[in-house]
Amino acid sequence: MEDLMIIDLFFARNEQAINETDAKYGKLCLSIANNILNSDEDAEECVNDTYLSIWKKIPPTRPNDFKSFICKIVRNLSIKKLEYNLALKRSKNMTVSYSELENVLYDSDICDETEYKNIGKIISDFLRQEKEEVRNVFIRKYFFFDSTGDIARRYSFTESKVKSMLYHSRNRLKQYLKKEGIDI
């Protein structure tokens, strides 16, 4: 079913909207949540929370890009869940990705949503300057938290090539953020 039709179902408060969303994006949501939480049970819970969150947000929100909208919700919920779980257990994949990013932008203090949006905009600008494959590898790693092995398989690259691409794009991002006046 087309995204617009699914959104219409949400607006009509038709529960079929959840089923259609699950049929179309369930696997994608589950993989994002699993990458972050490293637990099938937690991931499934997070995906269900995502559907509930979408149900609450639509209406009034009418997302322009439904796929991205869902991805962002499941990602945020998974990160929140991870932070909640971290006191008890650790997700190996996620903590590795975290530590790599910490070298780029030091976690000095917690900032508000406006600041995150601002940095997100600068990162978007930076990514648009990158080559398409480099950009997508970066997003697969730091947005979807795919492992380098998964990225390599997905794009038919070698793992070392993926690592090298990520290393160089992190360095370039660091320079770009510095140039844009972001505190590093």
């Binding site: 997302p63 322009n64 890009d65 796929k67 991205s68 909208f69 991805c71 962002k72 990602r75 945020n76 990160i79 991870l82 932070e83 990705s97 975290y98 990013l101 910490e102 780029v104 932008l105 030091y106 976690d107 000095s108 917690i110 900032c111 995150y116 949006k117 940095i119 997100g120 905009k121 990162i123 978007s124 990514l127 648009r128 950009r135 997003i139 730091y142 947005f143």
Partner: peptide, 16 residues
């Protein structure tokens, strides 16, 4: 989560 990991969650929709 590091500031940057959270900020990446705010990149443009089309990129995602």
């Amino acid at each position: 989560a590091p500031k940057l990991a959270l900020a990446v969650g705010y990149i443009d929709d089309d990129l995602v």
